[in-house]
């Protein structure tokens, strides 16, 4: 059976690459610290020696729109283009081509269906920055095959926080059952408190530093009870209108289980708290 080598849950700040590669005299003051933290985080994935990455993200109206928006979707293609024109334009993110892993995609899809998660699927999927940002930060060589999973954290009605947790638990069972000697890492991205296109956007901190502090505490200690007792769609909206991306971090903890992280770190940037979590559920790389 496959080994779950690591689970990573990370915020995806689309400006990381631009902020840390522009000429030093134009860089923001935190650029060097940000780069140092990201590189230390990257090492937590490298150390796990993964062969395949299960990537969790959310399409930000790049391939999918309101005429047909999937609640949960799995990519089943042999390879994936990444980065749309408007992401290149706004964030300076380059284009990538990632290899897929059709065998694990098929096994995952069937396993999800068997567990009551009736996923939409795509055989021609172009990935957006919710998946490419964590590739840039945690696996910049982009040299591993991926199985992409998209969730709806973006276009209401959204699934509940509990549903994200349960989906993570299901993905974990399926990885554990995958008949392979490969080492699989799951890498997913989301947000802590975040405001976009509203009155609390681009302040000196994220819109709700108190939520950020609690969220980091809950995730780093594996405290799903507190998350499910405190986090609702309404509470997330009060923390910032785009905070619902937090549910993808809940999903990632669902893959790891209700256990403490082996590693976590965070960085207070203008307008958002960056946060990085890694679990080694099997003690695989601890």
């Amino acid at each position: 059976m496959a080994t779950l080598a690591a689970v990573l849950a990370t915020t995806h700040h689309p400006f990381y690459l631009k902020a840390t590669t522009m000429p030093p005299e134009q860089q923001m003051p935190q650029a060097a610290e940000w780069k140092r933290k990201v590189e230390a985080y990257r090492e937590t994935l490298t150390r796990a020696k993964p062969d395949i990455l299960v990537m969790v993200g959310a399409d930000h109206f790049h391939q999918f729109f309101l005429d047909n928006y999937p609640t949960f979707l799995i990519g089943k293609a042999p390879r994936y283009d990444a980065t749309f024109y408007n992401e290149e334009r706004e964030f300076g993110i380059p284009k990538y081509v990632l290899e897929g892993h059709e065998e694990l995609s098929n096994f995952m899809h069937q396993g999800l269906m068997d567990r009551g998660f009736d996923f939409a699927f795509s055989h021609e999927l172009k990935l957006d920055h919710s998946i490419i940002c964590p590739i840039i930060t945690t696996r910049p060589d982009a040299d591993l095959p991926v199985v992409p999973i998209y969730t709806n954290i973006f276009a209401p009605p959204l699934p509940s926080p509990k549903r994200f947790w349960d989906l993570g638990r299901a993905i974990r069972e399926i990885i554990d059952e995958f008949p392979s000697d490969k080492r699989i890492a799951a890498v997913g991205s989301g947000h802590l408190s975040l405001e976009l296109g509203g009155p609390r956007q681009f302040k000196e901190t994220g819109p709700d530093p108190e939520f950020d502090r609690k969220a980091i505490e809950w995730l780093s200690t594996g405290n799903i009870e507190e998350i499910l007792a405190n986090v609702t769609h309404e509470s997330m909206a009060k923390s910032g209108n785009a905070t619902h991306g937090f549910m993808d971090l809940i999903l990632m903890m669902g893959i790891a289980g209700p256990i403490p992280t082996a590693y976590h770190d965070n960085l207070d940037l203008f307008h958002t708290m960056e946060a990085y979590f890694t679990w080694y559920p099997e003690g695989a790389a601890a």
Partner: peptide, 16 residues
């Protein structure tokens, strides 16, 4: 914003 247009679409296009 007041009509409930999606915040991500609105922010992105006016940034552009």
């Amino acid at each position: 914003f007041e009509m409930g247009a999606h915040f991500f679409l609105s922010l992105t296009i006016f940034i552009a």
